[in-house]
Design a protein around this nucleic acid. Structure first.
Length: 201
DNA sequence: TGCACGATAATCT
DNA sequence: GATTATCGTGCAA
């Protein structure tokens, strides 16, 4: 049905903002013990070097060190006492920056995702960063994983049947610092994108 | 359809 | 002790 090819690190832009745009329309795949879950990435946000809203802004700590790994590594953090969020590091080794994966259009393993998010419709299954991580079963255990290596969590080239996305841009959701910067990217018209209608035009 | 609000814990000051 | 890159519910229209 779906045939995803692993993206090589050399295919990823070495720039957090470019990576955020690049990842729209690509695939995220989790080969979990219970089976494969995958989807099309439809919404991202860039947290770039020098950005006061970025977790990496004040330098490396035990919590955010994964943001300083070379581009293509996972940074997973726990927020509001309840949710995990998945990022992809976006800069060269030693430079802090990352792309928050905010929403996915489910492709494979829909039943597995629904088991983790009972009652959620297909559109709402991975619509939002916390929901995305919950649906795919992503936790702190995945922090620091290389998404370009032969591990369980990886980035895939678009399915051959997928259309090229029309990419929209807006300010980021939920941030108070540097709130004006247009660093959120999304696929126009995709019902799995989170956020208000006004942001998604 | 669109807000307001509380839950909840890791992290940092 | 304050802050937080969220979510689900509840209530109003």
């Amino acid at each position: 049905m779906h045939r995803f090819r692993r993206l090589r690190r050399s295919e990823l832009p070495v720039d957090t903002q470019e990576l955020a745009r690049f990842l729209i329309g690509k695939a995220l795949v989790h080969d979990s013990p219970r089976g494969r879950m995958s989807g099309r990435i439809v919404e991202t946000e860039a947290y770039v070097p020098g950005d006061a809203a970025a977790h990496s802004f004040r330098g490396a700590t035990p919590r955010n060190r994964s943001l300083f790994l070379t581009h293509g590594h996972a940074y997973v953090y726990f927020i509001y006492g309840a949710w995990f969020c998945l990022n992809v590091s976006g800069e060269a080794e030693g430079v802090g920056g990352g792309v928050l994966l905010r929403a996915l259009e489910p492709a494979e393993g829909v039943e597995l995702m629904q088991r983790r998010r009972p009652g959620a419709t297909l559109h709402k299954l991975a619509c939002g960063p916390g929901r995305l991580a919950t649906a795919l079963g992503i936790t702190k255990r995945h922090d620091g994983l290389d998404l370009c290596a032969s591990g369980p969590l990886w980035l895939g080239a678009p399915d051959p049947h997928w259309a090229k996305p029309s990419i929209g841009r807006s300010v980021r959701i939920g941030v108070t610092k540097e709130a004006h910067r247009p660093l959120r990217f999304f696929e126009r018209g995709n019902p799995c994108v989170s956020g208000s209608r006004r942001l998604n035009s």
